[in-house]
Amino acid sequence: MRKSLFAILLIATPLLAPALVMASGGHGPELEHSGIDLKDKASLQRGAKYYVNYCQGCHSLQYSRYNRVAADIGITEAQLEKFLIFGDAKSGELMTNALRPEDGEKWFGTAIPDLTLATRWREPDWVYTYLKSFYVDDSRPYGVNNLVFPDVGMPHVLAGLQGVQEAVYKGGGHEDDGHIAGLKLVEPGTLTPEEYDNMARDITNFLTYVGEPMKLERRRLGIYVLLFLGLMFFLTYNLKKEYWKDIH
């Protein structure tokens, strides 16, 4: 018995380790709650608009098709072609871009990731906090760094909207200390902080949908499956009792 329990622990420990690390809080900054709602079609539509205008030039969504996205977020084919498709792409094509991998490595020092599964291998709160956590850092090639992604290789493409943030160091310290307590907006953008928060939330909501388009449907069907299994268990259990009653 002890050997069996020990074997189970050996197998389970590597699987549980990431969850235990996340539960302990890790060493990164505290993530902000995104508060996304996949049922909010207006938010998904805004998020799609922001994404294709500000993000898709570099980051593709190579596992998503334009027409499937349009159907899921509640826009027509005409609206799709007018507002979300640029260039000569067709509505049935994948949401890729013209940026070659070798150009991405040349300009940014690393291959630019596809973001279809960004909220699956991170999490929505991480993406939301990331979009809000750029700050001035003159030591970086593009003059910015990020709290949740230290030494990030990309520029802050939304800086004109959010504004410019500077790091506030613990105890009034200096950047050499490396202990950042928070960020301070020193140069406003075209959006207010509340408007930018909503924009970051909409982009996160859209990317969460893209990562698993069937999530809401899967949950809806899951309820019926569980109810069916519960009913079958009830019927099977009573059938078993009726079948064996004369024997026991």
Rank of each mutant, 00 (worst) to 15 (best):
P193R: 15
K245C: 08
V127Q: 03
T96I: 14
T208H: 03
G143E: 01
L147H: 01
S91P: 04
H27K: 14
K215E: 14
L94N: 11
R219L: 09
R201A: 07
A70D: 14
R218S: 10
C55E: 00
D138K: 06
T76V: 00
D137F: 13
L115S: 00
D151M: 04
L38W: 08
L99E: 10
I11F: 12
K49P: 00
P193G: 10
L216K: 10
G171H: 04
E102Y: 00
F234C: 12
F6D: 02
P113V: 11
L191P: 00
L44H: 12
A78R: 15
K241Q: 15
I11P: 11
K184L: 14
A167Y: 02
L9Y: 06
L161K: 12
N146D: 09
G109H: 01
L185F: 01
K215V: 14
H33V: 10
V164M: 02
A48R: 03
A7K: 14
E187R: 14
E195H: 06
I75N: 08
E105Q: 14
D202Y: 02
N53S: 03
T208N: 10
G26D: 07
T96W: 06
H174K: 15
V152K: 05
Q79K: 09
D103V: 15
E105K: 15
L38E: 10
L20C: 02
L9C: 12
S24G: 11
K241A: 05
R46D: 09
P18K: 14
V69K: 01
S91T: 05
V210K: 04
A70N: 07
E105H: 11
A71F: 07
T204I: 05
D72S: 08
R220N: 04
H33R: 12
D103Q: 12
Y224A: 05
T96M: 10
E212Y: 00
A78Q: 10
V168A: 07
A48D: 13
L94Q: 13
F86C: 00
R2V: 07
Q56H: 08
D103T: 15
Y130D: 12
P141T: 07
A71Q: 10
Q45F: 08
T192M: 11
L227V: 06
R2D: 11
L235R: 11
F234G: 11
A23Q: 09
M154E: 00
Q56S: 13
L185P: 00
V52L: 08
L10G: 04
V157M: 13
L84R: 00
D37I: 10
D151A: 05
Q79D: 09
I112M: 13
E217M: 13
K39M: 00
Y51E: 08
G87M: 05
T116R: 11
I36N: 06
E123F: 15
I85T: 07
V21Q: 03
Y243P: 01
G211Q: 01
K3G: 14
G163R: 09
V225M: 13
V136F: 04
Q56P: 01
L239N: 05
Q162Y: 03
K170R: 15
D37S: 13
R120L: 03
